[in-house]
Design a protein around this nucleic acid. Sequence first.
DNA 1: CCAAAACAGGTTGTCTGACAACCTGTTTAC
DNA 2: GTAAACAGGTTGTCAGACAACCTGTTTTGG
Lengths: 247, 247
Amino acid sequence: MPDAPGLFDRIDRPRRLPDEVAVSITAAIEGGQLAPGDRLPTEAELAKRFGVARTVVREAISLLRYDGIVDSRRGVGAFVTDASQRSSFRISPACFEKRKQIVQLLQLRTGVQAGASALAATARTEDQMARIDALYQQMAEADARGPAEALEERVDTELLLYRHITEASNNPYYAEVVAMIETNIQNNLRSAFLKNAAASEFGPAIMDEHRAVLDALHAQDAEAARTATRTRFERAADRLAARADFA
Amino acid sequence: MPDAPGLFDRIDRPRRLPDEVAVSITAAIEGGQLAPGDRLPTEAELAKRFGVARTVVREAISLLRYDGIVDSRRGVGAFVTDASQRSSFRISPACFEKRKQIVQLLQLRTGVQAGASALAATARTEDQMARIDALYQQMAEADARGPAEALEERVDTELLLYRHITEASNNPYYAEVVAMIETNIQNNLRSAFLKNAAASEFGPAIMDEHRAVLDALHAQDAEAARTATRTRFERAADRLAARADFA
DNA sequence: CCAAAACAGGTTGTCTGACAACCTGTTTAC
DNA sequence: GTAAACAGGTTGTCAGACAACCTGTTTTGG
């Protein structure tokens, strides 16, 4: 497969001025130079200081406002909002630079995914259950073929399996937040070294971990689903952390 | 208190053109007129169609790009990304219009908060525990004074209590996502009718629910913390749903 | 004829300048 | 003394221009 997704994706990103300005301002806020309630310098002033056009500054501020970091009022200025007013949750790629942060992110994923599974156990439809079973079957086959043969396919199927489980919770917010976290983990970890790490996720012992989740879903046992999912992801995280190449 | 937060806050928002354009484009994507991979009309074309300047369209597209909904390349155009590539999780105020959506949001909050509590049980420091205890004490006092006297204070203290618990997980991602969800729920529900609903959250029986969470944290029992937190928020959601004024 | 280089048209990214809408504090008018 | 008008500053929007870049076509050199 010459164009496997996530493999030769865009890595360089031609820096865009507004993004850089936004990062710069954000840093000033998080660094404490700008406290909640403070007024930002005027757009003209910022433009002059950064050496860019006002349109660039405007776009940058527009991004911050979008995330609820600042609030701007015509004729007055832009103000740093209260820190607890943020209206979005996003994961910066910088999170994947430090080992501790990756572990924390995996913790979050584990917890949220477990919650989704628990919900899915009771909220799932028979249709959804059937599709989940089919994906498990497909994953089992890829697993049997071994890491050398079907590494990509197994990883992808597993992703799809848990995505379907999450969606079976029939709670779109759960689905969104899990998908978002998962995407970020995949995008950043996969390109780094997940390829190798995925190889250690093969074998019947590990398939049993997945099996336990499915059994709980079949039994519509929310508690069991929660526990099984948590166990599965905690163990995967442990195995990842134990790897020598996990910087 | 003449300027209680969240009471007489900004309600009207002078419509900003870029936001409206962004919403419009988003609607086109979610409505299916624009499928993943499709190219958006050019900025000039969009500007003409919407009857606005190109800077406005640019700002709108910049927002969508920020959320990973589109990806634009200089000299080529802007493209709708794969739906699973979204890089942020945000809650639109529209979520609070339908009863079912509010329930789903509370489900999500319950699950994530429970995960944070479980983590906090083992990750907390003694310092953090002490501060949590102090907040509980403060809340108990407000509770004793009754809804007529200390409604605002009790609600705020409770919020602060669980925020501190979440932060005691010492996982900033958990803290961020919980704070974000919580903020949205508060901002939207409170102004609507949470004021009244909060009154039914008084009394020793309900304080016991909180007490159970604290006991688990003291015992450093992650499972108990998870269960107690879940129980507490599920019950609160149930009581809310049972209210007559819950449209 | 073929491959590489130059070209042309279109698109996004950035810059500049202008004006409208709006806010705040001061001054003026009644 | 109070209300209205004014002045200055700031954000929001508009219009036009050019740079950087991409893609497909044409031209050129062999």
